[in-house]
Write a protein that binds this DNA or RNA. Structure first.
Lengths: 159, 159
DNA sequence: TCATAATTATGAATATTATTCAAATAATAA
DNA sequence: TTATTATTTGAATAATATTCATAATTATGA
């Protein structure tokens, strides 16, 4: 899927750093910051996209603004054969499920779910999870408060 | 912090939907898609930003491209007084820690950590977590494979 | 090392977009 | 209904994106 036969240099790292910080930074600004021609930056950004190094650009929306105040993590024990992930794929189809991780240990999956409230969570568990065959059991962890939530990667410096 | 005395309408939702899908969509394109003047869209986007509805724009970078192939979740039992989160704030300062959630139950925190490999994780636990006072114990869950990882919210339709 | 090839950057030209703002509309409240 | 406020439009200008030929740089192999 991702074709990573590609070596990133310092300039790429700087671009990634800027983009990771603000994905709407325009080419001209990046070019100015790096002291290069906008066309050169454009070229690199396109390549980063094509090589699947930059996967996507997304806006982080305030969950409260959409009344999605409840965040939970659910451990799901499933009877999937290791590496097949049938249950995992079904879980991934649920819109409220933001993340699905196949985890080590007998739990099977760890999923991250955002709902309006507790009722929404119950709903989801009953209607969505409940309909997936192969789920043996679930264990839910409720988030009281989120202190940090980013997906920023640590980008290498110098070298 | 966030001032949410603001009611979103269908147009706002559409903008959010577009932005959530591709944060680099330009104003002109959004305007065309919604059949409105670019200036009107600009106005709305600015407001969405100012009202802390759109929190930030970020590029999702392929972790593999930066050799961050290891993802783990760590439950941290801490002796924080409920609601004070001293440990939580210290955890949030660690760059490899992408998320810190204060969770219900006696576990305390659930954090999401990205490192190069197992050695990097051990390093982090020893050097970073190890230096935080107030951590009573940790329980680590290793991610074998991620099936889905987004932060897209479910945006209401019609009404 | 040198020459050639391949890659990447530049700079200028053009196409598009962003941004501003006054006027017009629409929505809301009194 | 009328006044008030908020939003949208449309036009004008500033700025950015994009293309592409040329130049510079870097990599490669004899």
């Amino acid at each position: 899927m991702a074709k990573l036969e590609y070596t990133l240099d310092q300039i790429d790292y700087q671009i990634l750093r800027i983009m990771q910080d603000n994905a709407r930074t325009n080419n001209a600004d990046i070019a100015r910051e790096l002291g290069m021609a906008p066309s050169a930056i454009l070229e690199r950004v396109k390549k980063l996209e094509q090589k699947d190094i930059i996967l996507q650009y997304n806006a982080k929306i305030n969950p409260d603004a959409l009344d999605q105040k409840m965040l939970s993590f659910i451990f799901i024990k499933a009877q999937d054969i290791i590496g097949v992930q049938k249950v995992g794929l079904l879980l991934a189809e649920i819109p409220e499920v933001q993340e699905v991780h196949d985890i080590a240990g007998d739990d099977g999956y760890l999923i991250k779910v955002r709902t309006n409230d507790a009722a929404g969570l119950v709903d989801l568990m009953r209607n969505s999870l409940g309909k997936i065959e192969g789920i043996i059991s679930t264990r839910t962890t409720i988030v009281l408060e989120t202190v940090k939530e980013e997906q920023k990667l640590v980008i290498p410096t110098k070298k």
